[in-house]
Write a protein that binds this DNA or RNA. Structure first.
Lengths: 318, 318
DNA sequence: GGTGACCGCGCTCACATGAGCAAAGTATTA
DNA sequence: TAATACTTTGCTCATGTGAGCGCGGTCACC
């Protein structure tokens, strides 16, 4: 611990090599190095603790159960799924891994939800891409926030809800309105529209919700889709926002910032997510660390699917 | 083996997680998963064999003994030192690692050489930088090939021999002539010079040699130092050369190419290296793979210090 | 359908290993 | 210097673990 003797550390290394690479017994090593066999055993434990010997599990489906347990306890979550973030992987690959785990989690969820509220975005697009065919039987998927396709990409907001429903042998109900409108009155008008009101009513009482918080960055999908300008992002940041959930921007306490903007946003309220039996948030990458903390700390989600670095961040936060 | 069942692989993963991360005994795992304890033991062995569980030793001084053994056997070497090539490290860091190992090897060499012939170059410069003070007592270091400083860098050819001697509490004999001269006659004249002849005689009977083969690239030190032009490099490549040893360019069989150039090169002959008790070659990086193969296959060195990727390459070569 | 080859399984048994403990050694303080 | 707290060491013992064996099931080939 305190010694830091290079000579001793080198001995540790020799012992570790003999044991793990040379397949010698601790007794044999002790004989060769003039040590008792118990000393060798302790040195091996020390080498593992010091990280000289690293035992890691390498598998795409591997989950970090220790972190999951810590997260559920720390934030009173129903469940957590933490996948290892490979050092060599970029953000896109990481998102894909996390999305895959989320799809798997959803498929394994028991009792299977009869109605599932879903948001949209890059992460959910990836989740939809990994959902196993036949993951459910006759699920009813409901789009919980607006997202009329102003997006340039072919995978529109409505598409991911459809795909998830399709693979679950079920039906989909879309919310064919913009995510954010320009006038409060427009929102009110749309909401009073019968077809929209019906969807929202449905969306507010789903058995499960699946969404991905958005980071407050200039390349967010809300910016790319044209609902926000770069200036809006700066203004939100100045107002203390750390990101959005189903299009609603929140601060570190999970409270809505900029009420005026929020009143122009179409979709379920944060309260609806808080009330959900399974409210599953999916988030990957450093950009989402802060918004992740906000949603788990304020109970907007009760299930979190993420990568181990985000999990570490959440556990470090006081 | 042949099954490739994803379900079973997932079970393997679960078992591995429980054992290595959950610190459960094989018995407990068997209980939980309705397996016998022996099945669990076999699954763990399988998981390790399949690479799902990876046990690796992480330490700057770590050596790959299995590869060292394979190399010494395959090429009839006296000794081999193979250090792991960290995936994240660049070529410079890798060279430093290998150089450090070489310095250590030299210091541990028993019986300690009374006379040591050294070459020069970027790699040997790194070796000199890592040689421990007091690594020998009264060693006599002799420069084995020409290298009168035409180099732009401050670390001249003679400098590394001096440093190695200095740290070994010994003396140094330099070879103050160019590496390659322009006329055969010049070489003959220089060699007949008493002072040069004496050094060469000394250099030809060293107890140990330490050198690093050079790759045939346009940024080789021989080019940088002005002994060769870029065109010369291309000509040598066309003549079948894979690199140089103490300034002498060789082909894949370890034979000198371009006799005319070789006759203008000052220093010990390849035969002198082949005759040495310890002829230690130090080489790191992909660029030196081919020249490495040439020198170990043709017996120019009998000790090789290198990285694990080079070792892999040498073992793959039929 | 019969027969032999093969494979995976559970088990015995001998060995390897870690937890826990008391003695020896070492640092710390009065 | 002596007393004390703390660490390290070697050991006992219970437990964990892997090699090897025989059984039963499966498959291919006759």
């Amino acid at each position: 611990m305190t010694a830091e003797e290079p000579e001793y550390e080198h001995q540790l290394l020799r012992v570790a090599e003999m044991y793990y690479e040379g397949d010698l017994t601790q007794e044999q090593i002790g004989r060769a190095l003039h040590l008792t066999r118990w000393k060798v055993g302790r040195m091996l434990a020390e080498a593992r603790a010091a990280g000289i010997v690293r035992i890691q599990i390498v598998h795409p489906r591997h989950r970090r159960h220790a972190l999951e347990r810590a997260l559920t306890q720390r934030y009173g979550l129903r469940d957590a799924v933490v996948v290892p973030a490979d050092d060599t992987a970029d953000d896109v690959e990481l998102r894909d891994r996390v999305a895959s785990a989320a799809a798997q989690y959803l498929a394994d969820l028991r009792p299977a939800p009869r109605t599932l509220g879903v948001s949209w975005g890059r992460t959910l697009d990836a989740v939809a891409g990994h959902i196993p065919s036949g993951w459910a039987r006759g699920v009813h998927v409901v789009q919980v926030n607006g997202g009329l396709s102003r997006s340039r990409r072919p995978t529109s907001a409505s598409d991911m809800a459809s795909r998830i429903a399709h693979h679950g042998g079920g039906t989909v109900t879309l919310l064919p309105v913009p995510a954010i409108v320009e006038q409060d009155a427009t929102r009110a008008a749309l909401e009073s529209e019968r077809s929209v009101a019906d969807v929202l009513k449905l969306a507010r009482h789903c058995g499960a919700y699946l969404f991905s918080p958005g980071a407050l960055t200039h390349d967010s999908v809300l910016v790319e889709s044209g609902y926000l300008t770069s200036a809006d992002v700066d203004a939100l940041a100045a107002a203390g926002s750390v990101g959005d959930v189903v299009g609603r921007f929140i601060d570190t306490d999970g409270q809505v910032v900029r009420e005026d903007l929020d009143r122009r946003t179409l979709g379920v309220a944060l309260e609806d997510l808080r009330a959900g039996t399974s409210s599953i948030a999916v988030a990957a990458g450093a950009a989402k660390h802060r918004v992740c903390h906000a949603i788990v700390a304020s109970g907007i989600c009760n299930v979190l699917v993420t990568d181990h670095r985000t999990a570490d961040h959440l556990l470090e936060a006081a």
